[in-house]
């Protein structure tokens, strides 16, 4: 039985090696690099806070990029989650073909991250593309999707929202697991549909809303393929999200130290927002029976 104690660790061996070599050491490595100047040719050169100083005082590209990233996340995450929840609510009803719809709505999530879809997006939102042709049939003039900074960001956001399927599947599963007797009890007490949704359904969904919110936020902050392929960060850096900036600094210009500093700023932002979400969750996330695990 004594051997059992270490047997578990044995099975965990590969994971532990991976954790150390590919996560823990790189994690602190990039923190160290962020205080250095390193171009891969000579060894890293300690420069103290110089990278951060440049970042926060002189780097206008960084501020533009940070702005755009925050705007993108603020736009994409609520829009996507609200839409996913809305469609899940519509689907959660005695409908036939519910499986068929669920599958259809999930398809974009399967393909969404691929380069092929980013390519498709470029064609769809081109000046003479599918979207403008569809708009023309209802009498709306052609929109310059990629030339206008706001519109360009919107196309990237739409690509993400198009992939609402996985969030929707999670919402739908949660909706279907809600005890029907709760609805019946509320209906007998005379509560209307809207009241039932806001006072019963929504509170019971808060754990999955919380889960989806964190996952989508972490993901949105790391968006790369969309802006890289569709808009190349343009126009006027309007879609130049921080991951793009980090990629170019690190792997185009080989400013490994500076890129690490940007990565750490991005990481800090994500961490602070995640912590705020966790902290605030005590106030708004409802756990059935208050069973916290």
């Amino acid at each position: 039985m004594k051997g059992q104690r270490f047997l578990g660790l044995g099975y965990l061996g590969p994971y532990i090696i991976g954790l150390l070599v590919f996560t823990a050491i790189p994690f602190f490595g990039s923190l160290y690099l962020s205080f250095t100047k390193y171009d891969l040719m000579s060894s890293p050169d300690w420069t103290g806070l110089a990278n951060y100083e440049r970042l926060f005082t002189r780097d206008r590209t960084f501020f533009k990029s940070l702005n755009v990233t925050l705007l993108y996340v603020l736009l994409t995450v609520p829009l996507k989650l609200a839409f996913a929840l809305f469609i899940a609510t519509v689907l959660n009803y005695r409908l036939q073909f519910i499986g068929l719809f669920r599958t259809a709505f999930y398809v974009p999530s399967i393909l969404g991250g691929s380069i092929a879809i980013a390519v498709l997006w470029r064609y769809m939102f081109a000046t003479e593309g599918l979207v403008n042709m569809a708009l023309a049939t209802i009498g709306l003039g052609p929109i310059d999707w990629f030339g206008d900074p706001t519109n360009a960001l919107l196309t990237i956001t739409l690509l993400r929202c198009w992939q609402f399927g996985s969030a929707m599947v999670i919402f739908l599963a949660a909706l279907q697991s809600i005890d029907k007797s709760l609805y019946e009890a509320a209906a007998i007490d005379g509560a209307g549909k809207v009241r039932i949704f806001f006072f019963i359904t929504l509170p019971l969904l808060t754990p999955v809303i919380f889960f989806n919110l964190i996952m989508q936020m972490v993901q949105a902050f790391q968006e790369f393929n969309g802006p890289y392929i569709i808009t190349q960060g343009g126009p006027l850096k309007a879609t130049y999200l921080l991951p793009l900036y980090i990629y170019e600094e690190a792997f185009k210009k080989f400013n490994m130290g500076y890129a690490s500093a940007i990565a750490w700023v991005l990481f800090t932002i994500i961490t602070v927002l995640t912590l705020i979400a966790f902290w605030s969750s005590k106030k708004w996330v409802y756990y059935a029976g208050d069973k916290r695990s």
Binding site: F22, P26, F27, S30, L242, P243, F251, S260, L266, F267
Partner: peptide
Amino acid sequence: PNVVTRIPQYIL
């Protein structure tokens, strides 16, 4: 976020 480990991984 992967972004924070990517650079050292590349160097490794």
